[in-house]
Every structure is written in C-alpha cells, then in structure tokens.
Amino acid sequence: MKIKGTVWKFGDNIDTDLITPGKYMDLPLEELKKHVLEVVNPEFAAKVKAGDVIIAGANFGCGSSRETAPQAIKALGVGAVVAESFARIFFRNAVAIGLPVISCSKVAEAFDNGDEAEVDIEKAEIRNITKGITLKATPLSEDIKNVILKGGIIPLLKELAEERRRKSQQGRIKQ
C-alpha cells in the first residue's frame, strides 16, 4: 500500500481535543470534520485533499479515547498520518478504522508544509519526493498491517457475522 500526497505538517503533542474538540463531539461526522485542528491550522479542514499526508512530531493523538479523532481525519480524505510517535489509543483507533498510521523518527524535520510525500506501509518507507529524501519508518507488525490493508476491523466483523450465519444454517440442516 502506497499513499502519495501533499504534506500538512503539525508539531508535537497534537491532542485529541485539538483534532475533534469536545464542544463539537455531538455533531455528525460530516459536520465535525470541518473543525479538525481548526485552532492549529484554520485552513486545514477546508483545503486538505484526498490522499494528502499528515506529518507530525511526537505524541500525536494524545489525550482522550475518542475515535472521532482518527475518524474525522479519515473522513477528510487524509491518506496517512506519519508521526515521530503516537499516543497509544489514537494509534489503535486509527488501525481499527483502517487509517494508515506509521511512526518514523525525525520525520518532522525532513518535511515542510506543501512537500510531496510518499508513504509505503509495506516497506515502512517515507519519501519526501520534493526534497529527494527517503526515511526508514518503524515497521508495523504483520497483524496490524493486515488490519490496515483490510480497511479496519469492520470488514473483519462482517466476515465474522457471515461465518456465524453459515454455521447456524449448517446447524439447522444437520438437525
């Protein structure tokens, strides 16, 4: 899986209250996404394009367990988030909804806003096409990679539901 797009750069400690503020938490996703990171970069939500890449510093997504944070980022069309490190729950939530996330040390200093980036999830490589730099990211475990490639946990749950239906039908036939 390769994601190629324009870079939106953010700093350290981008918390989930900055991504999806509590005061908007009851809004539907389509409304909520318009407020993503508005106080950090007021242009971001309006101008981000499908496939664009967020490059950030340390501890991205710290704070609340609210899944709206990765959900709204994904709903804006962001193709991948690459950060020097992620807060645990944000990372898990992103994987669970199929938003590609990968950590890469010193990634923030290798990119400027507006650079073109290519993120290779399988090879764990981050390329700055504009500057001609390639960085090695921290490889994801096979299981995590598979969940991301499948598009998150929901496709897994659908498979599970299908399997249960099949088994209960077989049970009925045997009886």
Binding site: S65, R66, E67, P70, I89, R92, N93, A96, I97, G152, I153, I154, L156, L157
Partner: peptide, 10 residues
C-alpha cells in the same frame, strides 16, 4: 485501559 468504539465492537 482505554479503547475506541470500533475495537469495543470487536
């Protein structure tokens, strides 16, 4: 430990 909605569904 905390998890999100989708993992909780799982």
């Amino acid at each position: 430990t905390g998890i999100g909605f989708t993992e909780m569904a799982y």
